[in-house]
Design a binder for these strands. Structure first.
Lengths: 211, 211
DNA sequence: CCCATCAATTACACTTGGTGTAACAGTACA
DNA sequence: TGTACTGTTACACCAAGTGTAATTGATGGG
């Protein structure tokens, strides 16, 4: 199939149509309250076609997850010279403040992406799965860079720490946005969070929680 | 319902019977190749009863997960005076060598617990879920001990690092056991792994992978 | 000892996510 | 124009899990 072919165009259109239709329905009524049959009907497509494009119902919600994966990976592979991996992740976490406007917008909707996910077991599971995959990809990149021998547990541990930190800081930021206040102040508080977290990671967990 | 009542006795027996029957079938033929209907039939019980005791089919495999949770928690709450949390987790990981005989035994079985889980998406998902719950419980304990304000991301990050380290070291140990060799040597190698990992965690991730 | 109550189990009908297959329709391309 | 290819469809099917009302047997009081 050629890249610019008519077939591929139509296929992508169908995929997008299904995803959009599904997410509109999910937002309006909640994940569990919408059946795949309904989505198919609303998108004027057969149920089988839905499952041809998205292997599970959950994938209809997470079909944009590759972006996050790519970002995390870039933090390792594309970092400037003299930057440690930790530095790079800190920078990435600091840059999370750029997401504040989007979070604000999400709060207005009756059911934002995160309202959708949080509180729904199968979606939360899927979320963990995505995080796990990101961790694994990152661990592989770390192992390659460190020249670690196969089976070395360290890259994995470092990766899971970094991804965990990123996630926790993101969540904290969202919480701050939910609590309200000017962007300035939220940004300041978030940067302080980031420095505190990466300060600890930089000097070791040994003394926690005392030191 | 009284604790020692006949009703509760029978209920526990039924529960145990179902779990045992299910796991025997899983080991013999694999998780996906056994239906809940079959399990119910083999245990001479209705399908509904199976689901009354175990909310999902996966729970039939993981119904012992509470033990690990308790151990991780104890590493924080019951540690001796002067021991940091990191010390406590290191000790716990060092003690993993005691699991070697069990791992050896598992290897003999055509389908050990881990053969069952690894390679099966839904069981791996369930495994992550269990780990996630352990992390959450540990994070809460850490936050309580640190007197952290609600929403503080640090306890969560520390918890996920520690659980991640424990998991990775456990896996590495299993790998070593699979590769063979005398217990002595495996134990030595494992202890070296543990020291390397906790050495890094103790002095900070900053230099990784250089330093 | 009998009776009322309560909890566990059961039968059964049903929903829904997901798969397999073979036929169909429109694109690609010679 | 004809043929190979590929995405879509209809359709039949499987298995996990739920809701409900009926049944069985344990419990405890009079």
């Amino acid at each position: 199939m050629r890249a610019g072919g008519l077939r591929e165009l139509k296929k992508n259109q169908t995929r997008q149509l299904i995803a959009d239709t599904a997410n509109a329905l999910f937002r309006a009524r909640g994940f569990d309250e919408v059946t795949v049959d309904e989505i198919a009907a609303a998108a004027q497509v057969s149920k089988k076609t839905v499952f041809n494009h998205f292997p599970t119902k959950e994938d209809l919600v997470f079909y944009r997850a590759e972006d996050r994966e790519a970002m995390s990976l870039a933090a390792v592979t594309d970092r400037p010279a003299g930057f440690s991996i930790l530095d790079s992740f800190r920078a990435m976490c600091l840059a999370q403040t750029r997401l504040i406007p989007g979070m604000r917008r999400d709060l207005v909707h009756p059911r934002s992406f995160f309202d959708l996910v949080s509180g729904n077991p199968s979606l939360e599971r899927k979320m963990h799965e995505v995080n796990e995959r990101i961790t694994r990809v990152l661990a592989d990149a770390l192992a390659a860079e460190a020249g670690a021998e196969p089976g070395d547990p360290l890259p994995r541990i470092v990766a899971s720490t970094l991804v965990g930190a990123q996630r926790a800081l993101y969540r904290r930021l969202r919480q701050r946005v939910r609590e309200g206040g000017p962007d300035e102040e939220i940004g300041r508080a978030h940067r302080a969070d980031v420095e505190r977290v990466f300060g600890l990671l930089g000097k070791g967990l040994g003394g926690y929680p005392q030191a």
